[in-house]
Write a protein that binds this DNA or RNA. Structure first.
Lengths: 125, 125
DNA sequence: TATAGTAACTTGCAATTTGCAAGTTACTAA
DNA sequence: TTAGTAACTTGCAAATTGCAAGTTACTATA
């Protein structure tokens, strides 16, 4: 639906409605974004670390999701070297506070998808 | 990616990986499915009740999501009259147990999307 | 008998997103 | 000069989303 028509119904200028769930899903409602958050929680930082996962995320999808998360203030992108510039991604406070959502999903998933197991955190110095 | 190649990497035959989050997102990782669950939690039962929401879900998307949720055992579809057959949808126990996920999303959403408010439950007899 | 209304969808198709796989950039190392 | 690396971008086919009209199986009304 056109943004202008939704705006008419929606004076506070949320994208689809004033429901918090709707607004969260506007950012996280796809199959990949919360998996990127998972991997950052587990300690991955660099693009090459994030691209390696059993789910085999496509590199244009990973790049797209990282950009959206950065724009939303969920993660930061920081250079760890200069020539050439290379970057690490970290969760912000806002991003860290997504963990209860992941935990609730894990709780439900472990119960209803027997045989699933939580992935280990990677060691970081 | 082809299902056969993923199956090779994935002996327990999960769609993408053995992570519980991944499996939950295989069903809920889109912008609409958790909103359908929200509306069922709020007491909506019939298709015409579910189709009316500020987010203006498309009727083919609603039908598609209800079918998927029924196939996954999250909701039931029961006739409330016979001629013509007309149906109500209810959450199963498995579906009710999604509420902690919605609650975690709401908690984060209320904090980070100021001005959002939780929708009221509808009165039911 | 004809017409209108209702609820629960289905359909055709355009627009958008996903995902494959190759390519690009800006460096360093050999 | 060539190869390697990390972080993406690109072109394009396949899949999904979403619009809006249509269908089905009934009942109500004139």
């Amino acid at each position: 639906m056109k943004k202008e028509q939704k705006a008419a119904d929606n004076p506070a200028a949320f994208e689809r409605s004033s429901c918090p769930i709707t607004n969260v899903l506007d950012l996280f409602g796809d199959k990949w974004t919360l998996l990127v958050i998972r991997d950052l929680v587990l300690g991955k930082r660099r693009y090459q670390e994030l691209i390696v996962s059993p789910e085999k995320i496509a590199s244009n999808i990973l790049a797209d999701r990282l950009k959206k998360l950065e724009d939303a203030g969920i993660i930061t992108r920081q250079a760890y070297q200069q020539k050439p510039a290379r970057y690490e991604y970290r969760l912000t406070q806002k991003g860290e506070e997504l963990q209860p959502i992941l935990e609730a999903i894990i709780t439900w998933g472990l119960k209803y998808y027997p045989g699933t197991t939580i992935f280990p955190r990677i060691e970081r110095y």
